[in-house]
Nucleic acid binder design. Structure first.
Length: 584
RNA sequence: GCGCCCGUAGCUCAGUAGGAUAGAGCACCGGAUUCCUAAUCCGGGGGUCGCAGGUUCGAAUCCUGCCGGGCGCGCCA
């Protein structure tokens, strides 16, 4: 319907252009909005206000000219010029009931968009280092990324979801060493554990796996481990742990070291994968940083920067002149010791995404990564790419509240709430919904008690209940030995003239444009709000009118309407990764 | 110190690419069930949109400054 009126307006504008009233009709000239109140009709446009200057006419006069040139439409009952020059559109009742017909015809494809040019995007999210279980902060990125991807796909984008696996960094080395130390402990050795190592219980679990498969094969005397290395009173804690990594490699040999490293990686990554999958978050690609480097992609990207003249050498390291491209300072890509930096891998990964044919790479990052924005954009430019093909969405932090108080967390000590614990406590539906119900640039207060409560305060249940109620009506229909005849309902749709019915249909008609808007604005939270609004209309309707009435025409027409509502709720909840229960 | 984000009702937040009288949930007050699930509905009170300027027909929305809060500023990953 919206598109229909936009088309009418465009035709009018083109006509005015031909007759010389308007200089030119820019692309996206037509902006049609929903009115806030019915007295302004259904849709309104500010076209005349926006173009009055160019047309050298008073806004209201231009508005009249636009209205005079509108092609006739069976959906538009009348137009009205209001206020300083708004054009308001009032619709025929048939314009509303047509929506019900459309939904029942399209079913789960209602709201699926087919843009002329489908953009292809890759959405990277979570990408947590595989050094431990996901915690509640990752959960927000997971829910957001998954929902955004779902919506983009619905809006017609070619969408890929990917997870960047940091399987190559120093953090992984630290992890491997920690596993080894716990392994030695299990063997009965007494070994000091570095204070900045990974202390979580899960490290013991991994150590147990290594031991059950290898016995005491990698056992060394506890005294030999730290022999000659800086002691715990050393100032340089990082240097101390690096020395320990070197010692582990030396004692274990490459194969032995690999055993710990890979067991830890596979174990934790497998755990993350299961966790996300149980949470309804699936990835098309798990992209390995190690493979990126081994494939030569990092060198390839560095060469590209060099060709474009953005590299220079200083203090034995290779620097990227990022400051010339909007970043606050230059960045090292190859260290003095010859190793490439993490940033170099990032650049290579971005280039790789584009080379895989995506128009755009979307990154979902935690807000603490906002320093990367300027640097990655600089890199994109340095590679000779349009920096707008790189899009970074920053997720603000999620703070858990229990009994009205902030739940304290610290990753260092292993004292944090895992995503799995959260899911078990609130259930997946509530967790998915609560995570995305706020805008990503807003801090999220995650109220555990509210998410758990099976009460009217909980917005998830409010929406699910609307769906369950509809299902319940259809169950009752069967018990009355009646069936829903959609054909009769469709023929009788014109009887749906109650205000509650019009309001509900209006809400349903907004689904496609909501898919479009939430996709374009990368704003999944608006889908959550939209579904809440649909549920509100359904509940109001339910309370005001009886659906299972004697009159066959009215009954089937109403069943068509709530069936259409069920379809929209189901699709919408599906986008959010929330289930649509048949009874509650 | 520099940079990014945020500041809207008592609380938590929306506010549709500048639009018409700023919305919702919770909390608070008052009502609704012989009838499809009351996890629901109906009504009510409650706002200097952080502050001050500016841009324009029109600003919560854009610009500048200030105040308050969060986060970040490694040849770490």
């Amino acid at each position: 319907m919206r598109e229909h009126i936009e088309e009418l307006l465009l035709q009018s504008l083109l006509h005015l252009q031909r007759s010389g009233v308007l200089p030119e009709v820019p692309e996206h000239a037509v902006q049609l909005e929903r009115t806030r109140s019915p007295e302004h009709g259904e849709f309104a446009t500010n076209l005349a206000l926006a173009h009055a200057k160019q047309a050298k006419k008073p806004p209201r006069e231009l508005a009249q000219a636009i209205v005079d040139n509108l092609p006739p439409s069976r959906h538009v009952a009348r137009t009205e010029i209001a206020g300083p020059g708004f054009i308001n559109f009032f619709l025929n009742p048939g314009a509303f009931t047509g929506v019900v017909k459309e939904i029942l015809r399209a079913r789960e494809d209602y709201g699926r968009l087919n843009p002329d040019q489908a953009e292809s995007v890759t959405v990277e999210f979570v990408s947590a280092n595989p050094t431990g279980p996901l915690h509640v902060g990752h959960g927000r990125g997971a829910a957001f990324g998954a929902t955004l991807s779902n919506i983009l796909a619905m809006a017609g984008y070619t969408t890929q979801r990917e997870y960047y696996v940091n399987d190559n960094g120093r953090q992984m080395d630290i992890l491997a060493v920690c596993v080894w130390l716990r392994y030695l402990e299990l063997c009965g050795e007494k070994v000091a554990f570095p204070e900045n190592g990974y202390r979580g219980e899960y490290i013991y679990d991994i150590a147990r796996v290594v031991r059950s498969e290898n016995g005491d094969k990698y056992r060394f005397n506890g005294n030999d481990v730290w022999q000659g290395l800086p002691g715990p009173d050393s100032e340089d804690r990082e240097g101390r742990i690096d020395a320990l990594i070197a010692r582990a490699r030396e004692l274990l040999g490459e194969a032995g070291y690999r055993e710990f490293f890979d067991t830890a990686l596979n174990d934790i990554l497998g755990d993350i994968r299961n966790d996300l999958s149980d949470f309804g978050v699936e990835f098309d690609l798990w992209f390995s940083e190690r493979e990126l480097e081994e494939s030569g992609a990092v060198q390839h990207a560095i060469e590209k920067l060099r060709e474009n003249g953005h590299l220079y050498t200083k203090d034995g390291a290779t620097w990227f002149r990022a400051s010339a491209l909007g970043d606050e300072k230059d960045r090292v890509v190859v260290r003095e010791n010859g190793r490439t930096t993490y940033f170099a891998s990032d650049i290579a990964y971005f280039l790789n995404k584009l080379e895989r044919g995506f128009d755009r790479a979307i990154y979902v990052f935690g807000a603490d990564h906002h320093g990367y924005v300027a640097r990655l954009r600089a890199a994109a430019q340095g590679l000779g790419q349009d920096p707008d093909r790189l899009e970074i969405i920053l997720m603000q932090f999620a703070v858990l509240y229990r009994f009205g108080e902030k739940v304290q967390m610290s990753t260092r000590s292993g004292q944090f709430i895992t995503l799995r614990e959260l899911r078990e406590e609130t259930g997946d539906d509530a967790a998915r919904y609560f995570y995305i119900m706020r805008s990503h640039d807003q801090h999220l207060d995650f109220d555990l008690d509210l998410a758990k409560s099976r009460s009217n305060e909980n917005p998830v249940y409010y929406i699910q209940y609307a769906h369950a109620r509809i299902c319940s009506v259809f169950r009752n229909l069967l018990q009355m030995d009646l069936t829903h005849n959609e054909a009769i309902g469709e023929a009788a749709l014109d009887v749906l003239t109650e205000e509650h019915e019009i309001n509900l249909i209006r809400e349903l008609s907004r689904f496609p444009e909501t898919v479009d808007a939430t996709a374009r604005k990368r704003a999944p939270h608006q889908m959550a709000h939209y579904l809440h609004a649909v549920a509100t209309q359904l509940h109001a309707y339910y309370n005001a009118h009886q659906f299972l009435v004697e009159d066959e025409n009215l009954r089937n027409a109403r069943l068509n309407l709530i069936q259409a509502t069920r379809i929209v709720l189901q699709s919408g909840l599906g986008l959010l990764g929330v289930s649509a229960p048949e009874e509650m």
